[in-house]
Design a protein around this nucleic acid. Structure first.
Lengths: 119, 119
DNA sequence: CTGCATCCCAAAGGATACTG
DNA sequence: CAGTATCCTTTGGGATGCAG
């Protein structure tokens, strides 16, 4: 098997990021946190369609990889805040370029969506 | 329903890109094409694990969105080449920032994968 | 409020076989 | 070589109910 994951990684850095963030929600959660610290219910409200389960899963993953920090306030009712770590902030350029290209593409194709949009 | 997708898009540009490229293979296919035009079997070889079915699906999507061009040579056996369109080239900054941050993260965490890696 | 557990469904994707 | 069709497995993720 030799899945030992030694330091000498054979992996492509792009693939590494895609494996971590290439799902339906991770990037959007991070986008939200770039707007400042957020409580759980705020994230739920800002991400229409996400379930508590999925949100928690994504947050735990991001936390495990050191991109997000979870701060718990000893209050009742419970109070939890999520924030970006310095490592999380490193994806800022990705965010910026995504926004840039997304904006370009929206402008280019928004006017014949009715014809071409198949998803 | 009002799903009519009029020109005034409510959609976030980041989400727009994530919806299109946020899957297991699209980014990696594009990464490959940034290395130059590629034939089908070359893509299959360069992307270990991908199936012909999935590759075709991703290529068709990228083509439908105008990011990739498919050129057919009238030969036997068949000969097809895929290349990036100008629109496809627009994601270059995304590619670059992904590579940048991926490299950083690999260096940061490759040495305690054995402890933290849960996927 | 937070978030876990359960159940369940839909989508993504892999393997294989087959056609032109 | 390129691509399709079929079958099947895995995964993602939504809904709900419940506990702290």
């Amino acid at each position: 098997m030799l899945q030992t994951n030694q330091c000498q990684e054979i992996k492509c850095p792009i693939q590494f990021v895609v494996d971590l963030l290439g799902n339906k929600w991770s990037i959007l959660v991070l986008r939200e946190l770039f707007g400042g610290d957020r409580r759980t219910y705020e994230l739920l409200a800002a991400l229409p369609g996400i379930s508590t389960k999925t949100l928690t899963q994504r947050l735990r993953e991001l936390e495990a990889h050191g991109l997000v920090e979870r701060r718990i306030y000893a209050e009742i009712p419970p109070h939890v805040e999520y924030s970006l770590t310095p490592k999380g902030h490193q994806i800022k350029p990705v965010m910026a370029s995504l926004k840039e290209v997304g904006t370009q593409w929206l402008n280019q194709e928004s006017c014949f969506c009715a014809l071409t949009d198949d998803r």
